[in-house]
């Protein structure tokens, strides 16, 4: 068995092995192997290509952009997605605009250990994907499975654009697969994770698993819920979403991020503007509460959507 975290480690090992232009840069990624051990052993296997960085997110990202201009393909580990705000300027103003301004590609991969875990608190739990998706010039990946963690990370390194790779910390250890994949769904394509006909849940990242658990629960009551894993949120595979809503007539968008203007809002806006006639009921969405992410498990467990709260929303949607 291989975990989601190990898949990320293996993808980086393969990228380093396959392409001399790849290097890894980030805090504690060297001999220590990273705060989560996503680069465990890589510094030893690839001497001089897995480097510890000072606590300087702006300079870490900025230097990756410079290296990309010179033809390298850096993988940057932000220790936590939350800390990428310090490097935000370099990401959204420099990396995201470089190709548009100068026609020089900017092939950097920025790994953001994202999302909440019990006890992590306001500054080690954030889901930043909507912020980065807002800016033109970035590709934003949100893998939800071990297979996608592996194949999408390899794709991120291969893509000639800056990729924000939102890997979910909650999935690191307990999400497991039999083996690494040899084939991958193309980047930018969503995946139907569970087929159904009564309603569509559109989701991504860790919320896929809460949604699947909810769909399983409702199946025992006879409901057939379709669950779509967006995989990348930018680009967003509107076609797959619309096709599903055409089958089910009902839409619930679920995300762990905050509600205001995020991925769930975008999904609903697109379906409402392009597929209004497909809807049999007003579309719904479910997000985290609009407060900072709380520390204590009692609060955190209620702050984010869970299979239980998704089921409550779904029942409302199904009865609408």
């Amino acid at each position: 068995m291989i975990t989601y975290l190990e898949a990320i480690r293996e993808a980086q090992a393969k990228a380093l092995a396959d392409d001399p232009r790849v290097y890894i840069y980030g805090q504690d990624v060297g001999q220590f192997g990273g705060a989560f051990k996503a680069t465990k052993g890589l510094a030893k296997e690839y001497p001089g290509r897995v480097l510890d960085a000072p606590i300087s997110e702006d300079a870490i990202i900025g230097s990756a952009i410079g290296a990309a201009i010179e033809g390298m393909r850096p993988i940057i580990e932000m220790q936590f997605a939350d800390f990428s705000t310090v490097g935000f300027n370099q990401i959204v103003n420099q990396a995201a605009t470089l190709h548009w301004r100068t026609q020089i590609p900017c092939p950097i991969t920025i790994r953001l250990p994202s999302g909440g875990t019990a006890g992590a608190g306001p500054f080690h739990s954030q889901s930043m994907e909507a912020l980065y998706a807002h800016y033109p010039g970035l590709v934003v990946m949100t893998p939800a499975t071990v297979e996608d963690a592996y194949s999408m990370l390899l794709e991120a390194v291969a893509i000639d654009d800056p990729v924000i790779f939102c890997e979910h910390k909650y999935l690191y250890y307990h999400l497991k697969a039999e083996k690494l994949p040899t084939e991958a769904v193309p980047t930018g394509k969503a995946r139907i994770a569970r087929q159904g006909r009564d309603a569509t849940i559109v989701t991504y990242s860790a919320m896929l698993h809460e949604s699947l658990a909810c769909a399983e629960e409702l199946a025992s009551e006879g409901w057939e819920i379709e669950v779509i894993d967006l995989r990348t949120i930018k680009p967003l595979d509107t076609d797959t979403v619309l096709a599903s809503v055409a089958r089910t007539g009902r839409l619930l968008a679920v995300g762990e991020a905050w509600p205001w203007g995020g991925v769930t809002a975008e999904v609903i806006a697109r379906v409402a503007t392009e597929g209004f006639a497909l809807l049999d009921a007003p579309p719904m969405r479910l997000n985290a509460k609009d407060t900072p992410v709380p520390f204590h498990p009692n609060l955190w467990g209620t702050h984010r959507p869970t299979a239980k709260t998704i089921a409550v929303a779904l029942r409302r949607l199904l009865s609408a």
Partner: peptide
């Protein structure tokens, strides 16, 4: 010849990165 963005100081890490890349290569 780097193409500056307006945010002051931002080109300094970028140039550092070009030099890191040359060291790698």
């Amino acid at each position: 010849l780097m193409a500056m963005i307006s945010h002051l100081g931002a080109m300094l890490p970028v140039v550092a990165g070009t030099l890191l890349a040359r060291r790698f290569r």
